[in-house]
Amino acid sequence: MVQYPQEVLVAIILILRKQEHRIEDKKKITVAAALARLGVSSETHLVLRDGELLTDDALLRDGDTAQLIAVISGGRA
């Protein structure tokens, strides 16, 4: 299959557990879409950009860096 080069207009960095993930697209994407790319659920993760929590529909712009915070913890007691 031939892969055509795509023009990347938007690049976003998502940080999950101290690891950076670069997400690229031709347009701005929503938090929900970005999380889906990483296979991460907004039920179990909060998204923080510049000290602000973002809802699922918020748009991520080119050059944004957002931190994903896993919220689930659990031992026995």
Partner: peptide
Amino acid sequence: ERESAAYAILNGIEYVYEE
């Protein structure tokens, strides 16, 4: 659980992230 995490974050509470 995401609400108590959101409360901690929005109120500047530093908590242990690691499990």
